[in-house]
Simulated scan of single mutants.
Amino acid sequence: MSIKHGLLALLERGPAYGYQLRSSFEESTGATWPLNIGQVYTTLTRLERDHLVRALPENDQGQRPYTITDAGRAALAVWFSTPVSSTDRPRDELAIKLALALTTPGVNVPDVVQTQRVATIRALQEYTQLKMRANQDDTAWLLILDSMIFRAEAEVRWLDHCEASLVRKAAAASTHSTPVEDGDRVIEPHKVSRR
């Protein structure tokens, strides 16, 4: 999600200044994506430059609220009606880490997988606890929690798949009793074990 569109969505509710927008953004997303106040004001400056928001006069406390323009509403409508492409999402750091671990000498890949699995399962338990304690009328927060739970479950399944692939590769190598080459790295059959 872009901060730009998040701020436009919040301004569709009514005029607000930077700190209000940051608080509303974090409240709306369950603080799963904390914003730096500098990001908020930098984004507001760009939105104003692009005529998607307009700055209003300062209030008595010296705060300058912003309001969404018709062009901003149109951009927001396009964003809501356009599906999110996988190319629009940030790179998957875990997939990159495991790919590099496989080709980096001296890295114990099963340990990398297991360390991540433990952390992901712990996060999954935390998300489940949050969902149990959540206000059942707060649909937005419940949907965000569901998304985090489903992603964590998928990550655990993928890690299980990675580990099983390493075990199969090591087993195939041990029947030939020769090390398996994996790119520039050699995986010794005895170095891959199922946990």
Rank of each mutant, 00 (worst) to 15 (best):
I3W: 14
I3H: 14
I3Y: 14
G6V: 11
A9E: 14
E12T: 02
G14T: 13
P15I: 08
G18Q: 04
G18S: 12
G18N: 06
L21P: 06
S23Q: 04
E27S: 01
S28V: 03
L35Y: 00
V40G: 07
T43E: 15
T43A: 14
L44T: 07
T45W: 03
R46N: 08
E48S: 03
E48V: 00
D50N: 12
D50E: 12
L52H: 12
V53P: 11
L56W: 06
N59Q: 09
D60S: 04
D60R: 07
Q61I: 14
G62E: 11
R64F: 11
P65M: 11
P65W: 14
Y66T: 02
T67Q: 10
I68R: 04
R73K: 10
A74F: 05
L76N: 09
A77H: 05
V78K: 11
F80N: 01
F80A: 02
S81E: 07
S81L: 04
S81N: 08
T82I: 02
V84Q: 13
S85M: 06
S85W: 03
S86E: 12
R89D: 02
R89N: 05
P90M: 06
D92L: 08
E93F: 02
L94D: 06
L94S: 03
L94W: 07
A95W: 10
L100A: 10
A101I: 11
A101R: 05
T104D: 09
V107Q: 15
P110D: 13
D111Y: 02
T115M: 10
Q116G: 00
Q116V: 13
Q116M: 04
Q116N: 10
V118R: 09
R122N: 06
A123G: 06
A123N: 05
A123T: 03
A134Y: 01
D137Q: 15
D137R: 15
D138K: 02
T139V: 15
L142T: 01
L143A: 13
L145R: 00
M148G: 13
M148H: 14
I149F: 10
I149Q: 11
F150Q: 10
F150M: 10
E153N: 13
E153R: 15
W158S: 05
L159G: 01
L159D: 00
D160E: 10
H161M: 05
A164C: 01
S165V: 02
S165M: 05
L166M: 09
A171H: 05
A171F: 01
A173D: 04
S174T: 13
S177H: 09
D184E: 08
P189Y: 02
K191I: 01
K191P: 00
V192D: 01
S193Q: 15
R194Q: 14
